[in-house]
Amino acid sequence: MNNSYIRFLNLIDAIAGLDANKKLDATEEQLLDAVMLAYSQGREILVGDLIHLSKIGSQATLHGRVKNLVTMGYVKLTTDKMDGRKKKAAPTKLAMKHYDSLSKLLTKAVAA
């Protein structure tokens, strides 16, 4: 099939098989996308904002997936200095590397 997006998905699938421990599920990918978009726009995003993305899943599911992203090293949480109950989410170097890899795969898929 001569479709750039399908080639891109195939490349992602091949890469994901290399390190099964760092493979993100669809919910984790969407949460990480939200963190990265906020970061790229210079906005802060709180864990509370993430767990209220009801189109992705329930609050309990999202909270668990945010924990997974922290455990896997894709997201770091910092406590808000003004309100200790709030936790800010930010991408880590691993997350940046992940998106750099995706960008390279997309470029490769489009060029093929």
Rank of each mutant, 00 (worst) to 15 (best):
S58Q: 05
S101G: 02
Y74V: 00
A34N: 07
N3W: 11
L69P: 01
R43I: 00
G73F: 08
L24S: 08
L102N: 03
N2E: 13
M36L: 10
D25G: 13
Y5V: 04
K55Q: 13
K88S: 00
D80T: 01
M82D: 14
N21K: 04
P91C: 06
L77W: 01
L9I: 04
G17P: 03
G64V: 08
K97A: 15
L77R: 01
H98W: 07
D25W: 09
Q30G: 10
Y99D: 01
G48K: 10
N10L: 12
S40Y: 03
A90N: 02
Y5K: 14
N21T: 00
E44V: 04
D49R: 02
L102R: 07
D83I: 07
L105S: 01
Q59R: 11
D19F: 05
A26L: 08
D13E: 15
T61S: 13
A16M: 09
N10F: 13
L18E: 15
T79C: 02
V47A: 09
K23H: 06
G64M: 02
K76I: 10
I15K: 15
K88C: 01
A14C: 04
K67M: 10
G48R: 11
T92R: 01
L94N: 06
A90G: 04
A16C: 06
V35S: 05
L53W: 03
V35P: 03
L31P: 00
K97T: 11
L53E: 08
G84D: 14
Q41M: 11
G57C: 09
K87H: 08
K86L: 14
K88H: 09
K81L: 09
G17M: 06
R7F: 11
K55R: 14
K108C: 02
N68E: 10
I12R: 15
D83M: 07
L46G: 02
D80P: 05
G42C: 02
M72A: 08
R65M: 04
